[in-house]
């Protein structure tokens, strides 16, 4: 079935040019990077832009680099780019572990990390991991630059804090997370294409400060701050894990949908959190499974 909706297409060569086009068309403009969501939504008439603005002609937006003490990820960085990056594999291995679990190769080759958080479906894989990394979203609009902590980025299902005419120009992660242990546990129906039924990201610092985030069990990916506070500075023990499990219902609101029931999600979260914490701590201490492992 062809795409019925008609639109114009432009491919600006600079960020300024792109912002100019966005400013001119307002709501009528749709930014296009990898297209794996945008083209599917165009076909469904879920979006009906006047103009599609392809940002793949802009130099520098595909960079993965260290800028001072921060990792910069450009908006054209695909999940395949993340997987192939030595820098990420070595210093931000949790990011690597997440990327290998996204959809399938043909999607990862095209889909971008930034696109993933702009589509902002509750099950997006990048969400929980960027939340525990305390990432910053860098934006540029007609009024200038703006930085939004990832915690404030997701405001509802498929809704973000992106303002009209703004472009996400990158993500930043502090390299203080380098010494941490992490894990990303993703539950899906089958390998290859499926969205998460539930996901858990865990990051633990050398003094056992935990950061925990959940995906697909609420309207947005969420950071579980209360849960984190309750297990702070504790090594995993039966008691500590029990405390963590008990805190899950306060942090999440799973629903029943086509991919799983609320009960199943709630039950599996307990299993996933325990495995996630154990793997993150084992990795912190130099052991544990190799990053990229399926924990479930």
């Amino acid at each position: 079935m062809p795409i019925a909706h008609e639109f114009d297409y432009v491919k600006p060569g600079t960020i300024e040019e792109a912002i100019g086009i966005l400013a001119e068309h307002g709501d009528g403009a749709q930014i296009l990077a990898g297209g794996t969501d945008v083209v599917a939504q165009l076909r469904d008439d879920a979006i009906t832009p006047e103009i599609v603005v392809d940002i793949k002609g802009i130099d520098g937006l595909g960079d993965i680099r260290l800028a001072g003490d921060r990792l910069f990820i450009g908006p054209l960085v695909t999940f395949t780019d993340v997987i192939e990056s030595e820098l990420i594999r070595e210093s931000f291995p949790l990011f690597h572990e997440m990327a290998v679990k996204v959809a399938s190769k043909g999607i990862r080759n095209r889909a971008t990390v930034v696109g993933n958080i702009c589509s902002a479906v509750p099950s997006c894989d990048a969400g929980p991991v960027l939340l525990v990394y305390d990432a910053q979203v860098l934006l540029l609009g007609p009024e200038g630059e703006r930085t939004v902590p990832i915690d404030e980025w997701f405001v509802g299902p498929k809704k973000t804090d992106l303002r009209q005419c703004e472009l996400v120009v990158g993500l930043e992660i502090s390299s203080s997370a380098r010494a941490f242990g992490g894990s990303y546990v993703k539950l899906g129906r089958y390998r290859g294409e499926d969205l998460a039924q539930a996901s858990v990201a865990v990051l633990v610092s050398p003094d056992y400060e935990y950061r925990v985030a959940f995906g697909a069990v609420g309207p947005t990916p969420v950071r579980a701050r209360e849960l984190e506070a309750e297990i702070r500075n504790e090594e995993p023990s039966d008691e500590m894990l029990e405390t963590a499990r008990k805190a899950i219902p306060r942090e999440t609101s799973p629903i029943t949908d086509i991919r799983a029931t609320a009960e199943y999600r709630a039950h599996m979260l307990e299993v996933m959190l325990e495995r996630g914490i154990r793997a993150a701590v084992a990795r912190l201490n130099g052991g544990g499974p190799e990053y990229g492992t399926r924990h479930i």
């Binding site: 297409y9 296009l32 297209g35 794996t36 083209v39 599917a40 599609v52 392809d54 793949k56 395949t80 190769k105 043909g106 999607i107 080759n109 095209r110």
Partner: peptide
């Protein structure tokens, strides 16, 4: 619908021809 585009597999149903 997989094709190899500039060395990498993509889903050609999700790529606009103009891209």
């Amino acid at each position: 619908c997989t094709v190899i585009l500039d060395g990498k597999t993509v889903r050609s149903c999700l790529v606009l021809a103009v891209e």
